[in-house]
């Protein structure tokens, strides 16, 4: 997994609450058996005026000029600023894959849906929770200043604005450690293989029905 220690990038303001994973990447693109290539279809139904199809060249599709990622000032954004309950809905990891493939590295919102939040960390994306008030302030500053950038420091757990104002955020130690070091957490878990086996053996004795094959 790609590590993330620090990131500085242009902010794109996604000004609506409850952005769901169907919105982030619509279902027709979930038919892919790959992990990559979802970027052109990120927010497909908001971004284009026509109905997107898998394996289509998006270069000639009609763009929705009102959508933020079609506006030149946000086209190279890598920090997504969002409202409450971002990423609700399905468990599809295609949502973080699409955000990552587009070029986002950090997502800031007052709250995230649990599964989406977790999926981000598995893909080198950092979701940051800041208070409703701070997020509102960042929205206003983003709108007011073209090219507005935020500086994110995962080691220090801090977001800093261009004026030098900074906001601390919380992230649990295990996820932070994995992301800072780009660790494959399967490898970390397998270091405990013996303990897993011991647990399994004990369960096989006390609850053998959990290991039944079908009849």
């Amino acid at each position: 997994m790609r590590a993330l220690q620090q990131h500085k990038g242009i902010v794109a303001p996604m000004d609506r609450s409850n952005v769901d994973t169907d919105m982030i990447i619509p279902k027709q693109f979930l038919k892919s058996i790959k992990r990559t290539g979802f970027g052109p279809n990120l927010f497909d139904e908001l971004r284009y005026l026509d109905e997107g199809k898998p394996d289509q060249d998006c270069a000639n599709r009609p763009l929705n000029p009102d959508f933020l990622l079609n506006q030149p000032r946000y086209r190279n954004a890598s920090v997504l600023l969002a409202r409450r309950n971002f990423g609700c809905g399905s468990s599809r990891e295609h949502a973080p894959w699409a955000l990552d493939d587009f070029g986002f590295r950090v997502i800031i919102a007052p709250s995230f849906a649990d599964i989406f939040y977790n999926n981000c960390f598995k893909n080198g994306l950092l979701p940051i929770v800041l208070s409703e008030e701070v997020v509102e302030k960042l929205f206003q500053e983003t709108y007011a200043n073209e090219g507005y950038q935020l500086d994110v420091d995962l080691e220090a757990k801090r977001v800093t604005t261009p004026s030098g104002e900074s906001f601390d955020f919380e992230v649990d130690d295990f996820r932070r450690h994995c992301l800072l070091n780009g660790l494959d957490d399967i490898g970390v878990t397998l270091e405990d293989a013996e303990q897993i086996r011991a647990y399994e053996e004990q369960r096989r004795e006390t609850a053998p029905w959990l290991f039944n094959a079908g009849r």
Binding site: R35, R92, E93, I115, K122, V188, T189, I196
Partner: peptide
């Protein structure tokens, strides 16, 4: 019982466990 992403599908296949809070 709960939903997981694809990275965790791989994690469960490989380790029969999940890292949880």
């Amino acid at each position: 019982a709960h939903g997981i992403g694809t990275s965790e599908v791989e994690h469960v296949l490989a380790t029969q466990c999940l890292v949880q809070q």
